[in-house]
């Protein structure tokens, strides 16, 4: 039986989701980069493990990982090759597809045993199914497509003998700066996201949005207009060129609901909007909307939450 090769770059929830999805389709072989990735692959049911520990993998941008994955994939029969859909994952998949001369699908939210993938396009307004018509199915899988389920296994491990080739050394990673995550849950992990837009008016006023988020144990988000105006840092931007979120509850305060914003939040389970303009497009998708000044509505909401505690 041919296996499904899964690219496991780290021990993130996203990687665990892709392993879970793959397990539902067949026997999983994991290409794991480093110890943490390898233990995640075992926890999420990989039947076999290719372990890559080459020096300098992270000193160069993307290409070494793509090359190492290709060295594992080449010359064997695969039912599919699955990769988490991140900027890096898509780059790895694209380079692998060129190497293998196969087609590839990006951002699938589901994949069946026949290799048919589901993709949401046009800011989520259309749902298409598609497949790779020539060659093995290479697909990148969106975060949150399935719920990660552990299924511990003891995979047969094989160390991969890979050294970074000169071709893969063209782009050096000089430094990586990670901003501290802070005390609130991350945007993509939070069950509740409270976002503010241009209507919040200033960086100081964003403390009101933070208070509401904290009252619900949620994350804070922002529209691009709020980010561009310097009210809140870019890493909290929700939308097409920010983060895509799909929480149980999304609260949009002082956000008009432009298509690029909706692209990042419209699959939220419940959507609530506060906006003083009754014609704001956000109301057409809200489960509950309050037409009013957010500086009146939100403090009153906070009072009520306090009372009910």
């Amino acid at each position: 039986m041919s296996q499904i090769l899964v690219y496991v770059p780290d021990n993130s929830r996203h990687s665990a989701e892709v392993l879970t999805l793959a397990r539902g389709l067949g026997e999983v072989a994991a290409a794991a980069f480093g110890d943490e990735a390898a233990s995640l692959a075992a926890e999420y049911g990989a039947a076999s493990l290719y372990k890559v520990d080459a020096d300098g993998l992270d000193d160069y941008f993307v290409a070494p990982k793509a090359e190492a994955l290709a060295s594992i994939a080449e010359g064997k029969e695969w039912q599919a090759v699955l990769v988490p859909s991140t900027d890096e994952g898509k780059a790895v998949a694209a380079r692998l597809a060129v190497k293998l001369g196969t087609g590839f699908l990006t951002d699938v939210s589901a994949l069946d045993g026949e290799g048919v993938g589901t993709q949401e396009i046009f800011a989520g307004s259309r749902i298409v199914t598609s497949k790779v018509a020539k060659g093995v199915t290479v697909a990148t899988v969106k975060a949150g497509s399935v719920a990660a389920e552990a299924a511990p296994s003891e995979p047969a491990a094989e160390a991969v003998d890979y050294t970074v080739g000169d071709d893969a050394k063209k782009v050096a990673v000089l430094e990586t700066v990670e901003e501290p995550p802070g005390d609130r849950p991350g945007l993509t992990e939070a069950d509740i996201v409270v976002s503010g837009g241009r209507g919040v008016g200033s960086a100081e006023n964003f403390s009101l949005i933070e208070k509401v988020a904290d009252a619900f144990g949620g994350a804070v988000g922002a529209s691009r207009a709020a980010v561009d105006s310097g009210y809140y840092p870019h890493k909290f931007q929700v939308g097409q060129t920010g983060t895509t979120v799909s929480p149980q509850l999304y609260v949009a305060a002082g956000i008009s609901g432009a298509i690029q914003h909706r692209a990042g939040m419209q699959t939220s389970k419940t959507i609530v909007a506060v906006n003083k303009d009754s014609d704001a497009p956000i109301f057409s998708m809200a489960d509950y909307g309050v037409v009013g000044d957010l500086f009146n509505v939100l403090p009153q909401l906070l009072e009520e939450v306090e009372k009910r505690k």
Partner: peptide, 21 residues
């Protein structure tokens, strides 16, 4: 090397309750 098989519209989110403060 890829083929689109089907296309569907996502059901529109219907607007819920809107109240005026």
């Amino acid at each position: 090397s890829t083929e689109v098989l089907t296309v569907e519209s996502r059901p529109e989110r219907s607007a819920g309750t809107i109240v005026t403060d």
